[in-house]
Simulated scan of single mutants.
Amino acid sequence: MDDYLNDMALFVEVVKAKGFRHAAETVGIPNSTLSRRISALEKTIGLRLLHRTTRKIELTEAGQLYFERCKRIVDEARLAHAQLGEMLAQPSGTLRVSLPVDFAVTYLAPLIAEFADLYPGIQFDLDLTPRRVDLVSEPFDVAIRIGESESSQLIARPLASLTPFLYASPGYLARAGVPEKPADLARHQCLAILKTSAWTLRDGKRSVTVPVNGRFVLNSVGMIRSLANVDRGIVLVPREVVEDDLANGTLRPVLPAWYGTATPIYAMTETRLLPAKTQRFIEFLQERLARR
C-alpha cells in the first residue's frame, strides 16, 4: 500500500512537470526509475495514464481523471505532515514566491524582511518577474498579483486594495503650474502606465474621466516614480509607493481631494491546502497590509 501511494505522488509530479526528466530532478530519483514506477502503476491500475512521445507526455482520459483525484489526496497528505510538523516547531523550508517587480521593491521588501525575522527557519526563493508564472507546472508556493483576479482554477486570497492619488515634484509644479481641477491635467505632462489615454478620478461624490498625455510611455511604477522626482510630470500612484518622497519633500500631493480607481492585490495559490510556511506568509501580508 505504501508503494502504491508513493507512486500516486510520483505520477502527480510527472504531470505537474510535464515530463519525466524535470519530475525526476524534483523528487531526486533517476529518470529511468521514475519511468519504471509509473509503468508499474499503470499495470496495477490496468489502464494507460500517459501517452509518451520523445518530446512530451499527454494525459489519457483515464489519466486526467486519475490526476485530479490523486492530486487532492497528495495535497491532503502533505498538509497533514505540515500541520503535524507545526506542533513540534515553527514553519520551515523554502518558500518560493513570485512577485511583481516594482511592487516588491518599493513596497513589499520591508514586510518580507520583517516576516523573515519572525520565522528564522524559512528560506526564501523570490522571483521578481513581470510575467504570470504557471503555479501548476512551476515550483512556486504563492504568487502575488496586482489587478483583478483572472477567472481560473487558482485560489485567489485578497491581501489589500491600494488607491492611487496624484503627485508631482515642486520643481515641475513651479514650471508648469498647479492644477486646480481635474480638467487641467489635459495640459500637463502625465506619467502613465503603458499607453493610458485617460484617467478616471473621483472625489467621493463625482467621477470624471480626463484625457492624459505625456512624452513618456512606461511599464514600470519604479521608473514613473523616479521621473516624477526629477520634475518630468504628474503621477497617479498609491501613496504607499511614494511615502519616502512625500516625507523628504521631493513629491507633493496634487488635487488631494481626487483619487483613482483602487487596485486589488491578491495572493494566488494552486490549492486551498497550504503548508504552514505559505499559510503564515499570506496571513502575515493580510494583517500588515490591512494596517496601511
Rank of each mutant, 00 (worst) to 15 (best):
E270L: 13
E148W: 00
T129K: 00
G19K: 01
T54E: 02
I122F: 15
C190L: 10
D134I: 05
S152F: 15
T53R: 00
P170H: 04
A104W: 02
A176T: 03
A23L: 09
S152V: 15
S161L: 14
G46D: 05
I112A: 07
K18C: 14
A192V: 06
R131H: 13
G222R: 14
V136T: 07
L88F: 12
Q153Y: 15
W258Y: 12
I38L: 13
I282K: 06
I122Q: 05
Q83K: 08
T278G: 06
I57G: 00
L194V: 00
L273Y: 06
A62N: 03
V133I: 12
M268G: 03
A116G: 12
V217T: 12
I73K: 13
R72D: 07
F281C: 09
L10R: 11
F284R: 06
L79H: 04
F281L: 03
G63R: 00
L246E: 14
E138G: 00
D244C: 07
G171L: 12
D184G: 10
Q83F: 12
L173M: 12
F11A: 11
L289R: 14
V27N: 08
R78S: 12
F67N: 11
S149G: 13
Q123F: 13
Q189V: 06
R215W: 00
Y259S: 11
L88K: 04
I265V: 14
L162S: 12
V142E: 10
S137T: 11
L135V: 04
R48W: 13
T53D: 06
A186F: 05
T209E: 01
E287F: 13
A77E: 04
G260C: 05
N213R: 12
F115M: 01
V242Q: 04
A168F: 10
R280A: 05
R132G: 02
A80K: 06
L126H: 10
L111V: 08
N213K: 09
L118A: 09
R52D: 02
A113P: 08
S32H: 04
L128I: 03
D102I: 00
G171C: 05
D117S: 11
R175A: 06
R202Y: 08
I122H: 07
G249Q: 05
E283P: 03
T200R: 15
S39G: 11
D75V: 06
Y266T: 09
Q189P: 01
V12K: 08
